[in-house]
Design a protein around this nucleic acid. Structure first.
Lengths: 258, 258
DNA sequence: TCAACTTCAATCAAAATCAATCATAAATAA
DNA sequence: TTATTTATGATTGATTTTGATTGAAGTTGA
């Protein structure tokens, strides 16, 4: 059997039953234990599965990343509220990093501070920032077509040469145990680095992200302040505040007009 | 059996079963192993399939009509002609640098080569390149609000770490003595560096730039090929060709329909 | 903790597959 | 016709994949 076919088979089996023991895979494919082990190592490197002692497990890949076009529609009220709150944290002369994404994009029109320098890895952020005539720096790198974010070596290197007063980061998942996570490991690397390079860091997460775990963790809960809305899941927010040293910045005091 | 027939047969089999072992193909076609190997190499070069150890596999085809992007551009006829001519110089697998600007933007819809990697410092180029699903890298840096080009230290550093097969550069002035020039010294620096880092370099200049001298020179005439139109200033083009070792790529042989 | 057991990574030799070469046969040109 | 190019199949040695073996590392249960 061809290597390629065997890999397909392994992934299919995992698709069905979430975890598979090594013996099962040997049985299923007819290949030897050594071969399966090698396959698992390869597939793990390709982010196709996760190895566990005794076999392999499916990556908890949060379905598909919603495409930019879908997200772009228009900002929800929640996003606008978060945006206002986040923008209010920026002071005159601040140098801020703004992560790619719609949540972070929503904050830009509300930035009132003067002489703000904006650094970003998001194509959408650039547009918005230029509209507002901010001094705008962009990290380089490879453009991911889905989220239109700059990722890769170029981006990493660029960010590592900056220091920010504040960083505003988007997220796909926020979980009491697993912290902040996003589906793409390369994006996670960028987010993580931006937080490290920043004096203060804030994650913007609307209530739909509560309790979600996606593939790649980029920060522990206590590494960044959380800007969110109370929403229906106020209970989760309470737990968050108990569980960690998270500074939860709520938006209940803001009006939803704009 | 004819070579062509054999190739058809191979592709048909792959169409049906996604992967095929070498032995299967030998069986199916009656040709020798060597011949099939050669076929596979050829077909892979033609992007018709993907070779894998032990045989070949289908590659998922992504055919998108470039005509759409073509239609809704509002470029002048001259720019379109130059764009076609420039795009035709790009070959499969090339890594090309495309300068910020509308002249260079106009060439992107006409790029027909496969597996092209595009590196750019232009916001407008990014958009166009993503539409065409090219692998797109962007140099970082400060965004100049006027031309929407990335300039400054970040951009310089990023470019200096790349090597290009071909570079396509826009210009504001082209003069027999002063060479190619542009008003912004920082943009000039970028253009100059991109040319130096590239195996082949082409400047795109429509006839309105003939004889113009602007503030910052970025290259001598002979440092890059010139892609232009004959236009009204054909006389100038003749002088250009006499005066320097400029390779003038004209577009008079192209039709202006599309 | 210990010992019994399982799973693991590293290594090696055999098998399969590969690219490169060469000589022959067919097709094409002179 | 003869020369030249092209396609083919066989052969060779190199590379890749594979399965067995080994000792190390991890797991379990008392």
């Amino acid at each position: 059997m061809l290597t390629f076919e065997r890999h397909e088979k392994i992934l299919n089996l995992l698709e069905k039953q979430k975890v598979a023991k090594l013996a099962e895979l040997v049985e299923e494919t007819g290949a030897s234990e050594s071969t399966i082990r090698r396959d698992l190592t390869l597939l793990e490197n390709d982010q196709k599965l996760k190895r566990i002692h005794g076999g392999a497990s499916l990556l908890k890949r949060k379905v598909e990343e919603p495409s930019m076009a879908e997200k772009q529609t228009q900002f929800t009220n929640e996003k606008k509220q978060m945006g206002k709150r986040a923008a209010g944290l920026i002071q005159d002369g601040d140098c801020v990093y703004i992560d790619a994404g719609t949540s972070t994009q929503a904050m830009i029109p509300y930035i009132g501070a003067k002489d703000v320098v904006i650094v970003t890895n998001g194509l959408n952020i650039i547009e918005e920032s230029l509209k507002q005539n901010f001094r705008t720096y962009v990290v380089g790198g490879y453009i991911k077509s889905g989220t239109r974010a700059f990722i890769g070596k170029g981006a990493v290197q660029a960010i590592s040469e900056y220091r920010f007063d504040k960083a505003f980061i988007g997220t796909n998942g926020i979980d009491l145990d697993f912290g902040y996570s996003t589906p793409d490991p390369e994006e996670a690397q960028i987010k993580n680095l931006a937080i490290k390079q920043s004096n203060l860091a804030y994650v913007l997460a609307d209530s739909s992200k509560f309790g979600d775990v996606t593939f790649a963790k980029f920060a522990e809960l206590e590494e960044a302040g959380l800007i969110t809305t109370e929403g229906d899941d106020d209970d989760f927010v309470k737990k968050l505040k108990q569980a960690a040293k998270v500074e939860v910045v709520k938006t209940h005091d803001l009006h939803s007009d704009n």
